[in-house]
Every structure is written in C-alpha cells, then in structure tokens.
Design a binder for these strands. Structure first.
Lengths: 291, 291
DNA sequence: CTGTTTCTGAAAATATGCCTTCAAAGTGTC
DNA sequence: GACACTTTGAAGGCATATTTTCAGAAACAG
C-alpha cells in the first residue's frame, strides 16, 4: 500500500506535471536537467538556477507531496545514495522503468547510432555549401518530397518560408510538376528528398530541373537515391531502426541543422521577417499568449 | 599554479590526512565511506553521522583548504555533477573536420540531450497505453497538427494508415473542423500535436472532441500545451536547440517509436496490409524496383 | 604535580535558509 | 470592459545551519 512514498522525485514530477504552473514547470525542467544534483543546493540556489522565486520552489515541493523543500532534498539524497551504492543496476538505460528491450530503449540506441554514423559520413564542406546556396536570396528554392518524405519537405519549406522569400513547395502529385519546372530559372536550387523506395518521378523531375539549369540538392539514405547521381550536393542519412520502416529522425535532424545554419547566415533579414510575422500573428489572434 | 583547486574532496582528505586530529579522522572516514553523498546533508547531520561535533566539521573543511563547510559541500556537488553527466556526454566531436562550435556539433549535443531528458520525463506506462489505444481497431483515430506540427501529424498519419484502417487526418484549416468532429464516436482517439506557441483552435477542437467522448492524446513540449489538461495521455518532448526555432526531432522520434510499438502489437494484420500495399504499388509502377 | 599545548564540544552569535504573507500582474469569464 | 480567480515574486519573520568563542579535558614535558 506504499503510495507516493517509494516514488523517486523524478517520477513524482512526472506524475504531477499536469497540475504544475508555468514557473513550477520551469523549475521542474531545470531540476531534471542534471538530476538529481541540481536539486541539492540551497533553496536559493535551486530557485536562481531556474529563474524562479524561492516560494515557487516551496510550493512545488508541497505539490509533489513533501512537507517542504528540505524533505524533497532528503529524498533526492536518499535516491542518490541508493543508486550510487548499487552500481550494477545503474547501467545506462534511456527510459527508467522500462526494460532494455522496450521499444523506446531500442529505438533510442538505433537513432543515436544512426546520428553518429551520419555525421561521420557527412562532409561539413558540403553542408556549408548547401547552406550558402540556400542563404542566397538571388536564387529561388524549390522543395519536393516523395510519399513518406513529403512531410519532411513540408517541414523544411514551412521554416524556410519564414527565413526568406522565393520558396516553393512542389506538391506531391507528379501530374503538375512540369508547371513548376517551368518556373525554375538557371541558378535556382531544387531540394529533393528521396528515400528508398526511390520514386521514378523524383528522378525524372530532377533531370528536368537540371536541364533548366537548376542546382540539385538531394537528401537521401545511406544507399543513395539514383537522383543523387546528378546532384551537386547530396546528404546521406542513416535510417535503419528496429521497425518495418525507415526512420526519418536523422534526416529531420540534418534538415533542422541546415535551417539553423541558413538562419544564422542571414540573421539580419531573418530577424526582420520574424518580427513582421509576429505582428501578423498578433493581429489574427491565432495563438495564445505564451503562458 | 592551480594547486588544491582541481583536486577532488577525496584527494584532499587523503593528502591532508596526516595532519588531521582524532575526531577529524573519524569524520573523514565516514565521509569517504559512502562518498560523496554522505557529505551532502546539513553540517549537523554530517557531524552526527560520525559522532563528532559541528565545529570539528568546520575545522576539517578549513584544513582541507575550503573557506567553510558550505564550500566543501559545493565542491562535492560539482564533482558529483561531473561524474554523473560525464559517461555519455564526453564522447568526441560528432562531425570530425568541423569545429566544436559548428552548428552540426552544437545541434547534435542539444538533440541528444533533449532525447535523454524527454525519456526521463516520459512514463513508459503512458507510452504503452497510447500504443494499445492506437492498436485497437475498434477505435477510429483522428490526427491533427498545428502550423509547424502539421508535418509531424502528416508523417504519423501516413505510416499509421499503412498499419490500420480507420485513420483520419484532420486538415490544418480550422474552419472545417466541426465536420470532422461530427464523425467522432465515443471511444475514438484524437491525437493532437501542439507545440508552443499553442494554438487556440487546437484547444477548442480538443474540447469539442472530448464532449463527443473521444479520448485525447497530446504530443506537446516540455512546458505543456493547455490542451494537455484534458488529455487522457500526454507526451512531453524537449524541443530546445541553438536556433530561433524549436526542434521537432525528439517529437518525431517518439512518433516513430510509437508507430513501431503499434506495428509490433498488430503485426499479423499489419503484415497482410503491407503485402497488399506492395502489390498495389507494383501495379502503379510508381517506384523503382529496389536498387 | 604543574604549566603548556592541543583538542574537543557546549553554547552563544551570526548568517543563511526556509516559509508565510501579501500585493501586483496575468488569465479566464461573463 | 469589469470581475473573479490564479499565479508569482518581494519582503519580512521565524527556524535552521554555520561559525565563533571559550572552557574543560587530554596529552605531554619538565
């Protein structure tokens, strides 16, 4: 019948997170950040580290079921002692409370390994060159994806659209693609996502684009899309995971890093565009003010 | 010239042991016994544990080169933090040939840290429960995303559609949402993606769905969408990266792991569906035969 | 045995830590 | 827009934690 008694502080935070307020969540997050050491200082230290006031710390401790902050801290120390004196149980597991064989843990292993391999294989010069192309406002950028990678193309497009103008998202229906090729000028960039099984149509689009003088950038998997043959730049991502499908996590990672690189390169203009965007959002009242 | 500065507390004790008095040695021994946790309580606790007085503790701290007991304790905490965060973090640079400060390396650090934090906050039971809901073919599943998360919703939908029928992707235009709510039956599942800035409309949709008896599953960030309040299950992902935007990488990771979990749970049916799908693809000649 | 030195912990003094109160600001509602 | 409700940190009071003081105890030398 032991109830909250034998839960770790982390677990208590997890289970009570729903009823925590904004400042309390902020605190909870930093406490979990370098858990559990971050919670072992004085209440003042802990509060300052999360940019909240000391009353907030006390209030959260009580919400988690402790009498006060010192009680919470004692629990942390007890946990720490238990883990340290028990080095065998503590081998690295991503998700505590789930077995090693749980899909979350197996997936986490696979994805980090994919990330490592991908970055090992990636030429930073290539990456920089692509970023430079995308940052060049003289060039229009056209984005296309396949059956699965459409979502990635979409994500990339949405962000890039904030950063710069001259972005086009080519829809997934191949029928209208010639219309889009029509608008490509020499020096334009075509970013194509093509993961196995590689699509005939993407290859054909790439060829069409090249004859119009477009520069081809391909995001593909470790085996390489046939379209990559003609590509000026090609990013190969590892995509294997314990599943019948391939993983897009690493590809998304590279996409985001690329967006960040372009954003940095053109920060002055990007900042202005973002401000304007904020104002437009405010007018539409589409979003809640940040809580 | 850094002398005692970079020594651990344990090393300092060892080197100064000769000049310690009887009571101080007694203290030193118990402190080393379950080091370093034993030193993290209040000075009173520490003193009592070794059967010495608090002044003894202070005196020893000063002999070891600290200004006082709190300073010694801070050193212990710092050590602990270093040992705990070290084992995985301190691997070499991700991308060789690019400096540590290259966006790829900074991004890789941020994302793996996000992943670690997310999995710590995640309740595996919650994850399993969601997987079970999604695997239940009696329930229809409705998927919706916001401005940015639309791509994730789309990705999730595309894969789930292969696994099972009864999937609906709710479009991003809020105007037609009531039409979709009309089709929700009690026991159906609504999977909503809502990352800051949280959208008013998603919250309202969630409420509508709930009154129709739908079970709400929310994917959100570490601060928690307001829609998460009404949610039966909520997955919170860390999304901070060195960029003006938030990262969706970890969210996509969870989504993929979820897809894999559902796939495993319903493998018999899924396999059949995939075979049929392959045949359909073959007929359309949409893809190149695997190269 | 006495004086000297060193060590030790009780107790007082001081500094922080911790908690409560409360007013201001934010949010949701009518 | 006015109201109630929630959330939040500044300020202050009380409670510990930490340090200092100091006197007794122990060890040692002469």
């Amino acid at each position: 019948m032991a109830r909250t008694k034998d839960l770790t502080v982390a677990e208590r935070i997890r289970s009570k997170f729903a009823i925590l307020t904004r400042a309390e969540r902020q605190l909870a997050n930093t406490m979990l950040e370098s858990y559990p050491v971050s919670g072992l200082g004085s209440i003042t230290t802990v509060a300052e580290a999360s940019d909240v006031s000391t009353p907030t710390v006390v209030r959260m401790a009580k919400k988690l079921g402790f009498g006060g902050f010192p009680e919470l801290q004692a629990a942390l120390r007890a946990e720490l002692e238990a883990t340290i004196s028990n080095p065998i149980t503590k081998h690295d597991r991503w998700t505590e409370g789930a077995p090693d064989t749980h899909i979350l843990n197996r997936f986490a292993d696979a994805v980090t390994e994919n990330l490592r391999q991908t970055l090992r294989l990636l030429d930073p010069e290539d990456f920089n060159a692509i970023a430079a192309l995308l940052a060049d406002r003289q060039r229009s950028v056209h984005v296309v994806g396949g059956r699965i990678t459409r979502s990635l193309a979409d994500y990339f497009f949405t962000h890039m659209q904030v950063i710069r103008d001259g972005m086009t998202l080519i829809p997934s229906s191949a029928g209208t693609w010639p219309h889009y090729v029509l608008n490509m000028r020499s020096g334009d960039v075509l970013v194509a996502f093509d993961i196995r099984r590689y699509e005939h149509d993407i290859l054909r689009l790439a060829e069409m684009a090249r004859t119009r003088g477009a520069i081809l950038v391909v995001f593909t998997d470790q085996w390489g899309s046939p379209a990559a043959q003609d590509a000026a730049h090609c990013i190969r991502c590892r995509i294997e995971v314990p599943s019948a499908w391939d993983s897009s996590v690493v590809t998304l990672f590279i996409v985001e890093a690329m967006i960040a690189a372009v954003e940095t390169a053109t920060w002055d203009q990007t900042r202005d565009r973002m401000r304007t965007l904020e104002e437009l959002f405010d007018e539409t009242k589409m979003f809640r003010k940040f809580v």
